[in-house]
Design a binder for these strands. Sequence first.
DNA 1: TGTACATCAGTGAACGCGCGTTCACTGATGTAC
DNA 2: TGTACATCAGTGAACGCGCGTTCACTGATGTAC
Lengths: 201, 201
Amino acid sequence: MVSPRPYHHGDLRRTLLQASIRLIAQVGPDGFTLREVARMAGVSHNAPYRHFRDKESLLAAVASQGFQQLTRSLQEHAARHRRALERFLAAGEGYVEFALRWPQHYAVMFDAPPPRESHPEYAAAATQAFGVLLGHIVECQQEGSFPAGDAHRFALVAWSLVHGIAKLAGTGRLGMKSKSKIMRFSRFAIQSSLRGLVGAR
Amino acid sequence: MVSPRPYHHGDLRRTLLQASIRLIAQVGPDGFTLREVARMAGVSHNAPYRHFRDKESLLAAVASQGFQQLTRSLQEHAARHRRALERFLAAGEGYVEFALRWPQHYAVMFDAPPPRESHPEYAAAATQAFGVLLGHIVECQQEGSFPAGDAHRFALVAWSLVHGIAKLAGTGRLGMKSKSKIMRFSRFAIQSSLRGLVGAR
DNA sequence: TGTACATCAGTGAACGCGCGTTCACTGATGTAC
DNA sequence: TGTACATCAGTGAACGCGCGTTCACTGATGTAC
C-alpha cells in the first residue's frame, strides 16, 4: 500500500536544492528547468515558488551551496598536511577534485553566475572559498616558504591555474581519460607554478 | 528610394556567421537563437537552413572561426619578438587578449563545445590553436631556454593558466576594472608560471 | 481542552511566448543543346 | 543566340513543444483566548 504524500512536504526547500543539483548534473545549467526540478521533488510545478522567488534565485542558491562544498573540499585536503606549503598544494588539488566530481554544479557556480548584487549570499560564499586560498598563502609567507609580496595577487594566479585545469579537464580537453591521470597532471602543474611564484618578486 | 533586397543574397553564409558573432556578443551562447540571427541578417527565419544543417552546426562554425582567429592572435603577438621564450610569453598574452575582447565568442568555443565527432572542422581548428602553443615550447627547448621533457605536458599547463585567467577575468572575478590591469596581471602570472616550468624536471 | 481564525504551503488550470524545424512553394540562376 | 529544364536559394505558414509565471483555490498548521 502506497502511503500518500502528505500535503505538507516538510523539507521542500532542501529537497529542491538537492534535486536541482542532481538535475544539473544530468543536463547542465542550460537544460535546467523549474518544472523538471519540481517533478523530481514529486511536487507541483509551482510549489518551488513558495521557497524561491524565481528560477534565478534557485540557481543562485545552488551555486552558493556549491561554494560552501568547495570551501569544505579545500579545507579537508589541506588538513591532511602540516607544512603550510604542502597544505596549499593539497588545497589546490582539492579544488580540482571538487570540480571534476561535480562538473555541472561547478559550471553553475562559474559560467552563468547570478548578479552579485541581488544575491549577496552567493557573493559571500564565493568570497569565503577564495579566502581559503588566500589564507594558505599568508600562512606560507609566515612560515617563510613564500616570499613577502601581494598575497592577493598570488592567490589569483593560483586560482586561475586550478580553474583553468578544472574547466579544460571537465570538458575533456586535456586528452586524459582517467581521473587519476588528471589529478597527477594537476599536481605537476600546481607544483610547477608554485615554484615559479616562490621565485616571484 | 529603398533598393529592395535581391531575392538571392549572394553571401548569406558569411553574413550569418558574422551576425551570429554579433548576436552572441550581445546575449551569450544561451540567448542565441536561429530566428534572431536570421532577423539580423535580414532574411527569413529558415533561410539559414540552406547553409547550416541545424542550430548546432551554425554554432560549431562560429566556434571554428573563433579558433582560427585565436590562432591568428597568438601568432601576431609572438611575431613581435625574436627570442623563443619571449615569443611564448607574448603568445600567452595574445591568448588572454583575444578572450577578453570576445568573451562570448570565447564561451561558445569552450563552454558548450559541439560534439567533436560530428564537427571535425571544429576539432581541427581547436587542435591548430593548441599547436601554436606547443610549437613555441618546442622552439624554446631548441633555443635552450626550456628544459627537455614532455612539451605537450608543458603546453597543457600553460593552456590551463591562460584559460583560467581568461575565464575568471571575463566574468569579472579578478576584481580588476580595467583591461590594462588584467593584462598586467596576466603577464605577471604567465611569467611566474613559466619560471616554475623552466625549473621543472 | 476547544475553538475561531490567521497564516503557511501546497494544487491545478491557464496565460503568452518564442523557439527549432518541416512543409510546400517560388523566384533566380546556370547549363546543355 | 534561344530555349527548356534542372538546380539552387530563398519565402511564409504551420507544427508541436515546454517553458516561466500568475491566478484563484484549498488543505494543513499553529496560536490566542
